[in-house]
Design a protein around this nucleic acid. Sequence first.
DNA 1: TTGAAAGCGCTAACAG
DNA 2: CTGTTAGCGCTTTCAA
Lengths: 335, 335
Amino acid sequence: MKPTIYDVAKAAGVSIATVSKVINNTGRISEETKKKVLDVMEELRYQPSVVASALTGKRTYTIGLLIPDLANPFFAEIARSVEDRGQELGFSVVMCSTDNDSKKEAKYISLLKQKSVDGIVLAAGFQNDTVLKELVQEKFPLALIAREIPELAIDSVVLDDFLGGYQVTEHLLSLGHRRIAVLAEKARSSKERIRGYRHALQNAGIEFDQSLILASEATVEKGYRNTVQLLDSSDPPTAIFATNDLLAIGVIQAGRERGIGVPDDLSVVGFDNTILAAIVDPPLTTVAQPIHEMGRQVMDILIQRIEDEKKMKQRVVLLPELVIRKSTKPLQVKK
Amino acid sequence: MKPTIYDVAKAAGVSIATVSKVINNTGRISEETKKKVLDVMEELRYQPSVVASALTGKRTYTIGLLIPDLANPFFAEIARSVEDRGQELGFSVVMCSTDNDSKKEAKYISLLKQKSVDGIVLAAGFQNDTVLKELVQEKFPLALIAREIPELAIDSVVLDDFLGGYQVTEHLLSLGHRRIAVLAEKARSSKERIRGYRHALQNAGIEFDQSLILASEATVEKGYRNTVQLLDSSDPPTAIFATNDLLAIGVIQAGRERGIGVPDDLSVVGFDNTILAAIVDPPLTTVAQPIHEMGRQVMDILIQRIEDEKKMKQRVVLLPELVIRKSTKPLQVKK
DNA sequence: TTGAAAGCGCTAACAG
DNA sequence: CTGTTAGCGCTTTCAA
């Protein structure tokens, strides 16, 4: 059987209170007994039970991470960065892939609460507002990453999506493109990116064309389908801004299939700068999110919140960076 | 404050023992009181504390998943499949990315034990044999996925790597290739794949050339470097078998840089059939691992082990499937 | 069919 | 500086 605090107390000839104190470095213990206890702990390979200590009101040192899909490289990278920072700070993270399904979201949240996690970080795309509001009301430690909910006061770290959309569009405009389509996912961040896009168009005096905006789920498949649709229209775009890399890859594939070369006949820009962007051919011009930094910051913020529920709420906005690769090119004037 | 079992007992006018019994569906309770208790539980939105129940010797319904790197698509997919099955069965999974660092492995294992997880699944590439042996000795519930340790009796679900390597090589041989290099990672599974490769060569009466085997870490970068090295050698291969997709992508990139076209001048085969394989250009001929099935099976096996430590140990071997795409082609005879 | 009570391993007053 | 003790929320005999 695993040794308990009683075992080490007995072996060290002290009380469990004393052992507890040396474990937690609280109270005042003579160097001598402290050393003895430490020695015994080592000898017995004693490890305090987090479960027991949690029951007395202490932390579980575990947080939940809700993301749409762990198999999506963008979220996998977010998860990794959150996990890394958690590890550094002594927190474990339990993974919850929700598939943007509000049922699963609710189920996971409920599960996490039963398990007394110390806090939860929510990544992009949380559908279930009701559950969220409850969490906020009961002041459950929460932090958002790559996701904003303007109407709720929740700590969050986000990318400046507006700027990202703006940068993309400006880049495309500078290459001479005027007819720029947007493949968007149905998330709020996409709306911001589109807003940036519109703003850039406006600055350039170009009229916004709603028919150029297509919304769908964030998959290669959808990117492909929507691109086919665009390409088959009477007045196809010369550039496509996909609000994530997966969609952008779908664009490239559709182009290839239709004999529309990227970037020669069609420029395409992605978003997120996932590992995929560097791997597709042509390598994707895309917007880099500082994922590692974001993961680090949510964890820090969440843990601050856990430690002090009255701490000022904050929203950290990080800036995107346009990574120009080979999928965009000056517009060829038709001869 | 969150309601406890006492709150519902009081509100229902029964003892906590009774409440406990209806929660766990144990003992004999009259339909009447059962209903009352259930109602009260609902009304109070009571959720039993997993922490408290774990302290009395019950499960935590949490398992640990150790993988090299969550940001690697192959492992992300494994993680997702494990998580999915866990979710179905009521288990949470806490993620641990080890970077194949035996220090981190030991640290994570220790942490997981402190948190009283019910079991651990270990994915490919566990360095720290000492820790592992201890775990086995103390009969800690363990299961391996995509990883075999012949000298240790541990439940595991693996791919038939030998067959995978054989299939790849046979395919390449059938295309007329005779000089086939291998980029391997330093894992046992790679050794098996190489064994399959050698076996296929032998069957074809081709002599094995050790200089054609290069080992490294599993990154695009390493694949690139090693390919450059091969290409610059006096007698370069006409085909390269990379033991995972990441390496294979490095091969393609190196080829592109050197003006060696894939598949025209060089055939390349990957392994794992990650999302990347479908996305690179040319799409990668690769070996598909039934990841979803593997994840499902490890979880099932692990949970069986948790429930009955004396259950027969087993090793499930799933079969690979060669997915032929565009990165391989019959050898061009030089004119 | 129900409930009283002992304990799971640990923490935190409080006393000494 | 150290120990006694009362919980934390739940499960599980054992009586009633």
